[in-house]
Nucleic acid binder design. Structure first.
Lengths: 130, 130
DNA sequence: CTCATAATTGATAATCATTCTCATTTTATA
DNA sequence: TATAAAATGAGAATGATTATCAATTATGAG
């Protein structure tokens, strides 16, 4: 990853922002420092830095929403390789909610836990490939 | 909510699908049962049913991703009203990961917990409005 | 320092999921 | 059965993000 002035200002703008900004908001901030910066450059750099672990991208699954007829409390696991979504039964969560409510004073009315990684099948596949 | 044949087949298609389908996938299944069904009808009904709690919509925050320079382990809380994203410190999560790994055998390499509800300020605002 | 190569950029078109619009049809009920 | 409310289908519109591509910039060897 070569140096670029644009990446530099993107990273520092992100560090100076307490509220986790969206790309659009960052763009409005960045244009003040560099009126010529391109939206494509911003997205490119955000993705790059997120890949390298320099920043974190907060979002859900991939782009498309998934729908579930099971409305009971449970979590989801999405496999990075095959993109399948699996149910994970819930038996730890209530504690998290109670604890988080106490710590923050926020009114929590829902939460989602999404794990990601490799499902069993894809993990086997990758082992075989080696 | 009035009865509609389309909603009926959407709901049953969803129940018959083990893997949590995307709208696009559901659409391809549904067209076999009703070649005239519209994508708009599908989305409309999925949103409606999710609102009524008949099904669950699995996705992250709102549409746009948020970015975070804090790469330490922590969760997020998104306020339904002001849409701000807050950090929630982590001190329960490792147990969840260990437990989930043991139960499923999946290779979990990351997970996100996103709480949603009302932040303190918005909760106060709403109380005052009453 | 200077050239060659790879990385990066800006501008804009393209994509993809989703929502909106609106005229038409269906459902519920008085 | 008449009427109002709800739902539909088709396609346009939107919003976030990614892809394309020619031009610019960074880097490392000589």
């Amino acid at each position: 990853m070569n140096y670029s002035r644009q990446r530099e200002i993107i990273f520092s703008a992100l560090k100076e922002n307490v509220v986790h900004p969206t790309a659009e908001y960052l763009y409005s901030v960045l244009k003040e420092k560099d009126p010529n910066i391109s939206l494509a450059t911003l997205y490119r750099n955000l993705n790059q830095m997120a890949e390298k672990g320099l920043i974190k991208k907060i979002d859900g699954l991939e782009s498309a929403s998934h729908y579930d007829h099971n409305t009971h409390e449970h979590y989801h696991f999405i496999c990075k390789k095959c993109k399948k979504v699996f149910d994970i039964s819930s038996n730890v969560a209530p504690e998290i909610v109670v604890k988080t409510k106490a710590e923050t004073g926020f009114e929590i009315d829902s939460y989602d836990i999404v794990f990601s990684g490799l499902c069993k099948d894809c993990f086997e596949d990758i082992k075989e490939e080696k």
